[in-house]
Amino acid sequence: MKYEVYDELRTTDDYSIFEFESIGLNGNIPKRIEFTPTMVSGVYNLAFGDIDENDEIDDYNISNNGDRNKILATIAFAVDIYLNKYPDRWVYFRGSTQERTRLYRMAIAINLEELELKFQLFAEQKDDMVPFQKNIEVMGIIVKKK
């Protein structure tokens, strides 16, 4: 894929947390990615966003830093690193809003052929998981290394 990523990431020794700085129109904004076990064995939730005053992830804030594609690519890079380390795990993610989920769906759809070479991708629909396809509505996405 031809997208640029932020080229320095800080991480924990188990790769469960990544941090980087978004650099753009509104200055330098620290960003955090977290992978957390869910109630489903082997499935880990991906959370991403700004770091709030409680040191937690705020995934509602809109930074408007002009680097959306670079941020998405950096998150994808972190997922790639994480799943290389934990090839038996699934990573689940959805947007904090429907619009963001749609954005993630479109980003995956545009790069689907290349992503499918490396990953199994499923789309969450109402009560079901179906293989990811372009042009379907999704509520969440779940991915694992092939």
């Binding site: 894929m1 031809k2 997208y3 640029e4 990523v5 932020y6 080229d7 320095e8 990431l9 800080r10 991480t11 924990t12 020794d13 188990d14 469960s16 947390i17 941090e19 040191d55 690519a73 994808a76 890079f77 790639d80 690193i81 290349e114 992503l115 490396k118």
Partner: peptide, 18 residues
């Protein structure tokens, strides 16, 4: 996936959040 090398810094201060 990406034609770019990234520097990964394993940071002890981040480990406190594990």
């Amino acid at each position: 996936l990406f034609k770019q090398e990234v520097t990964l810094v394993v940071d002890d201060s981040l480990n406190r959040l594990k």
